[in-house]
Design a protein around this nucleic acid. Structure first.
Lengths: 315, 315
DNA sequence: CTGAAAGCGCTTACAG
DNA sequence: CTGAAAGCGCTTACAG
């Protein structure tokens, strides 16, 4: 072909705005350059979720940076979605980021059996053999407890979250690790079970303090998220107790409200952006068959000391 | 083939978990059963956006209900994204829902030229020839002004939003329509330009009241969103003015804070869920080539009268 | 009614 | 280096 003709053709291509068909390419290469992001979270509105929204957003951003398109799946809108593997394991996605799926769920087991590439984000059991990226739940709780222990606290209440969630077990482990290190006796800790639901922190504070003599009260409350902590402070207030002078309170998350609240909260920042980003990176390395890096990552959180913690009252 | 063999084969298919390849099917049928959702919004965090988050969420849900997968595109993470048509006009999406794209943008023009199926959601010019679904911006503003007019207000301030946004022009038109209907003189209205940004409503309230004699003050402030309104109330408070007895204030959005604020706000609910849902329905009907329904829809908002409005002080 | 063939639009390995 | 051919895994129209 003469260079002249060649140029003419290329010009025409440009003119007409020819776009190569990505589906045909995908079929040929068995690679769509697309990942799926499944958000298995049951909060009322996904976008109100302080935790999974940012993870999802950063995962989509990361995908775009790697020139991958990202398809979202919300099982909440159709709960049978995870069952229907044909919706996303039919070649249209090269792999899946699973946000909030337990690593031992039936769904994950099925993906593993097909050796379909996936990465779990949050709610993954350490010790499982699935690829995951999670915050270092154990370490974060340990850091938080350590902070209080260093302030001199010796008696604690722990407001846990929903039993079903993996992170609750892990955070509990972290607290206990710190307590053990400092030789805190089991009888000096009150574990208060409950959910992450609204009012939960408020109600548990009343229950905690109602039944016991003031001299037996803990001097610090460790809450497994910031909302529990903020509600707990509110309850303390109504009981005429001041935070942090009468009672230190800590949370986990670094939710926006933890900054803007009247008593800014001491908490641990969840590495949300990092979770989404690294999950996508890990997934792509698995898809490409080059998983050089470790396939289970626990990303540390960051202790943020604000004004809800202080040394205990001299008694 | 004998029924026996047939059963054996089907059993094997079941056993092995065979999933037909959706990419091959898509190539053959030129239909991926996938739509793209492009969110062209420039707020810092998409998921903090009170308006575009729910629209996006409901669009994705609607897509799933119609057995379509939904791929998200965030130009914010890579501003050149709309230019690169090859990313989504390469066959992998059958059509596009455009959230926050002006109907006369270059990007929309390009899609039109290729006759690639799309629907604009919000920020669409009425009178354009592109398919769109939007809240009835004109009607909502009219309703809001009408509410105040019926309460007996005669002098108004209008806190507009960013000039660049289509909805600002439309809401302005709605207000003026209501004012004209009631024979309100131009001199009785103070249009205060500004942005939707933080502190904007607060600052404008001070500016509004600083320069003028109290007898010339408006008795009602129409804000083009709830945040402006909430900040305005805050400023009034600091100026020693009570809402609604000294000044009525209204917003638009029905943001969560408009309910929880100390003075619950009179506002108009944006039909966010409906926008996402109907945009997807319209898009699918265009893709299927059966657009029986009208291709430009303005969905009415709903006036919600709460406690920030009252008749003007007898003067 | 069943089964073989053509074709969707690419990519890639191979022949010329 | 260039160009024709085969094939990715489906669907669909057509021949038997």
């Amino acid at each position: 072909v003469s260079p002249k003709t060649r140029k003419k053709v290329l010009d025409a291509v440009e003119q007409l705005g020819y776009i190569p068909n990505g589906v045909a390419r995908g079929l040929r290469r068995s690679r769509m350059n697309a990942i799926g992001v499944m958000v298995s979270v049951h909060s009322t509105s996904f976008f109100e979720d302080h935790c999974h929204g940012p993870i999802t957003e950063s995962a989509i951003f990361a995908a775009q940076q790697f020139e991958q398109s990202a398809t979202l799946y919300f099982p909440r809108s159709s709960p049978e979605l995870p069952e229907r593997l044909s919706l996303y394991c039919d070649g249209r996605c090269d792999g899946l980021v699973l946000i909030g799926q337990k690593s031992d769920s039936d769904f994950v087991t099925k993906l593993k059996a097909r050796s379909f590439p996936f990465v779990c984000v949050t709610e993954a059991w350490e010790g499982s053999d699935v690829p995951y990226v999670d915050a270092d739940q154990v370490g974060m709780a340990d850091t938080l407890a350590e902070h209080l222990l260093e302030l001199g606290h010796k008696r604690f209440a722990v407001f846990m979250g929903d039993d079903m969630q993996v992170n609750v077990t892990q955070r509990l482990g972290g607290c206990q690790r710190a307590f053990a290190r400092h030789g805190i006796s089991l009888t000096d800790i009150t574990y208060v079970p409950g959910t992450y639901g609204p009012k939960s922190g408020y109600d548990r504070t009343f229950v905690l303090l109602a039944d016991t003599d003031r001299s037996d009260w803990p001097t610090a409350i460790i809450c497994f998220n910031d909302y529990l902590a903020l509600e707990s402070i509110k309850a303390l207030n109504e009981l005429g107790l001041a935070c942090p002078s009468d009672m230190s309170v800590v949370g986990i998350d670094n939710a926006r409200e933890s900054i803007t609240s009247p008593i800014p909260l001491t908490t641990v920042r969840l590495p949300l952006i990092e979770l989404g980003q690294q999950a996508v990176e890990m997934l792509l390395s698995i898809i490409d068959g080059t998983p050089d890096e470790p396939l289970q990552r626990n990303i540390p959180g960051e202790l943020i000391v604000r004004q809800s913690t202080a040394p205990p009252r001299a008694s």
